[in-house]
Simulated assay, not measured.
Amino acid sequence: MYSFANDYSEGAHPLVLQALCETNSEQTCGYGLDGYCSAAADTIRSLCSAPEADVHFVVGGTQANLLTIHAFLRSYEAVLAAHTGHVNVHETGAIELTGHKVVALPSADGKVTPDMVEQAVAVHFSEHMVHPRLIYISNTTEVGTLYSKSELAALRRCCDDLGLFLYLDGARLGSALTAPGNDLTWSDLSRYTDAFTIGGTKNGALFGEAVVLVQEGVKDHFRYYMKQRGAMLAKGRLLGVQFQALLKDGLYLRLARRANEQAARLREGISALGYELSYHSPSNQIFPVFPNHVAERLASSYDFTVDAPVGPDRTRVRLVTSWATEARDVDRFLEDLARMQ
């Protein structure tokens, strides 16, 4: 059984493990105040051309999202997100647990646009309703699509006009930055957003996300939220060591590019066999539609996510490649798929 279910089924890249082993016996202070976290944060600030940004390391993506969103919002303020957004459908109400409603915006491609935001703000017009205050986006999106620089800039202008914050979930940021057609750079993230994350869990780390705070208003109290929400890891240096290894010599982007390349081979092979792809995804997530009997036969040899039925006889599935996906894994899947036609 080979898994195309996600991009974190494997452990860590060997260079990350090597760095952890080499520093294993060192003694450092805890809670992210060690030299490794400090050096990794400096690297991120330099990479993103954001010398004044605060950088914090947490274990996982849901933790990063709920901490950051909660730090930005007052009790009556709400989040705007695509209906497919991770905070809306994959975090078990974590944002709502902090007291903030997620307002879901119908989206055909997983992205949020200024028009969608303006309409949502317009219908929340009184003190009897929650007050939209923050836009949540992810890049790549939950359906594998990308934001362009012009789209991100347009959202920034929209936020400035309406007094909103813009937060970008970068759980799959590596895939986004290395996908064909991408025109965003590291520095664009700090230029256009108030906060963003850099995902390690889905791109070669054992675990870990970097939270980058650009907006001044949340910096002074963010670590209080971290401690209160159980996000201040005692052995915090384990996060700093991993991010140092991932960001050294461009490893982070090389791993993401490898995942994208294998996804492209998978996508092209599936299309060549005549199967429909639900979204234009140049990243490491693809969403083919298979006849039900084909999906069922594939499930006997491969692990993947069943996304949604497409009529009575077809099923949309999600296939995800990782930094560790080999060409032979893709070839075997395509060969098996061809035999099922």
Rank of each mutant, 00 (worst) to 15 (best):
L20N: 03
H83D: 15
P51I: 08
L17F: 03
L47E: 14
T84I: 05
E216W: 11
A263P: 02
D161P: 02
S148P: 02
L334W: 03
R191A: 11
R157F: 04
L15H: 04
H83E: 12
A104D: 02
S25T: 12
V102M: 01
G199F: 09
S322N: 05
T98N: 09
T43A: 15
I44F: 06
S49W: 06
E276G: 03
T141R: 00
M340C: 07
H128K: 14
P288F: 08
E296A: 10
G274V: 00
V241N: 04
T141C: 08
P114R: 13
R316P: 01
T68M: 05
Y8D: 11
G93D: 06
D115Y: 00
T185C: 10
L206S: 07
A245M: 05
R172G: 08
G32C: 06
N139Y: 01
A264C: 09
D336I: 01
V317M: 01
V102L: 02
L213W: 09
L105A: 11
Q63A: 13
F57L: 13
H128N: 15
P309M: 04
L189P: 07
L206W: 07
L239K: 03
I135A: 02
M232Y: 15
Q18V: 03
A231D: 14
V143A: 02
Y31M: 04
V59G: 06
D336W: 00
V212Y: 07
E22N: 07
A153S: 09
S49Q: 15
P132A: 07
T325L: 13
Q119A: 14
Q341S: 13
V89N: 01
T113Y: 05
T141G: 08
F165S: 02
L173C: 05
D303V: 05
E91D: 06
S107P: 06
E22C: 09
Y275F: 12
L67S: 08
T178F: 00
M226A: 07
H56L: 15
C37D: 09
Q244A: 12
L213D: 14
M232C: 13
G61K: 00
A234W: 10
Y192P: 03
G217E: 14
P106E: 14
L155I: 02
R267Q: 06
H86Q: 09
G208V: 09
A108S: 13
G269I: 02
Q215G: 10
E326W: 06
L173T: 03
V112W: 00
G61S: 04
G311I: 03
S138D: 11
R267L: 08
T201F: 08
I69G: 01
F333K: 03
R223Y: 13
